[in-house]
Design a protein around this nucleic acid. Structure first.
Length: 281
DNA sequence: CGCCTTTGACCTGCGC
DNA sequence: GCGCAGGTCAAAGGCG
């Protein structure tokens, strides 16, 4: 399945961090190959008498970037909605086709959470009914909430980064760490600490194939708004709107969506500033 | 002082 | 029933 045929990911944005300088410097083509020239250009930029014009240009640039950021957020929201709608349709079809199989299900016991993950996350986004029988639910009422939603996120980290921290905007509290048999790198266990009653748990472990990739497994659904949304409405605990893992791909039952936001320098700086203030994993 | 991480002990499910 | 492995608890210590 070619996911690119589903969603057009070409944003065609006018991203140019050096635009302000460019507007005042006609030597743009030379600048990248000639650092000295760039320096003089920068000095010229600093010593220009029309500071008001520069301030105005900067404000204009800031507004433009903010507008692009807003458009990106809207596009991402629409993409997520479309993706969820398609996935729900797929799950609907699968549940219809699998109903007979489920009724005459050959498995007496579930394999464990691991088998669910290996099935590429059958229980996703509220479609948990298909992953557990009534018999199991009656036997294990404790697990009903935890298994309501299981999803994975793959996050690429720096080569030397050994921490098991996945920045997803939520606030997590680590409550355990284990070395598992199938993977030499330890697995960290997190609980959502943004809301005391939030049942969501997260397991983070380095990929056995690629040590620079963190695999975050989310279990359950947040019963509170995203901290970034909350931050937008005045809270100081979450990340600012638009902040996200630098490079993350979300995988549930569908195609992987990779977000690479490392290009946006200015927004990243802002995010960094907030991250140092608000320790969000 | 409160929140977080660390880490060993304990609990629980599963296979044999 | 036993052993193993994964998951959770909770005390201790660190940090801002």
């Amino acid at each position: 399945m070619d996911s690119s045929s589903w969603v057009d990911t070409s944003l065609d944005l006018n991203i140019n961090p050096l635009r302000v300088i460019k507007s005042d410097a006609p030597v743009d083509a030379e600048r990248f190959g000639m650092p000295r020239k760039m320096k003089t250009t920068f000095l010229d930029f600093q010593t220009k008498p029309s500071a008001k014009e520069e301030t105005g240009a900067l404000e204009e640039e800031l507004n433009r970037v903010s507008e692009e950021n807003r458009k990106l957020t809207e596009m991402l929201t629409v993409m997520c909605e479309n993706y969820n709608a398609l996935r729900n349709q797929l799950m609907d079809c699968m549940s219809r086709n699998g109903e007979r199989e489920l009724l005459h299900g050959p498995s007496k016991k579930r394999k464990s959470a691991g088998s669910i993950n290996n099935d590429n996350n059958i229980a996703v986004n509220g479609n948990s009914e298909s992953s557990s029988t009534d018999e199991e639910l009656s036997k294990k009422p404790r697990e009903e909430v935890i298994k309501a939603k299981i999803s994975r996120a793959y996050v690429r980290t720096e080569a030397g980064d050994t921490s098991l921290i996945v920045k997803d905007g939520y606030q997590w509290r680590k409550y355990g760490q284990k070395v598992t048999r199938d993977n030499p790198s330890p697995r960290a266990y997190f609980k959502c600490s943004f809301a005391p009653s939030c049942p969501v748990k997260k397991k983070v472990q380095r990929s056995i194939d690629d040590q620079s990739v963190l695999v975050a497994t989310y279990e359950g659904e947040h019963n509170h708004p995203h901290p970034s949304m909350d931050a937008a409405s005045g809270s100081s605990r979450g990340l600012p709107p638009g902040s996200a893992p630098c490079s993350a791909s979300l995988v549930s039952s569908g195609p992987a969506i990779t977000l690479d936001l490392t290009k946006s320098k200015s927004s990243n700086d802002d995010a960094k500033r907030f991250e140092t203030k608000n320790r969000c994993t």
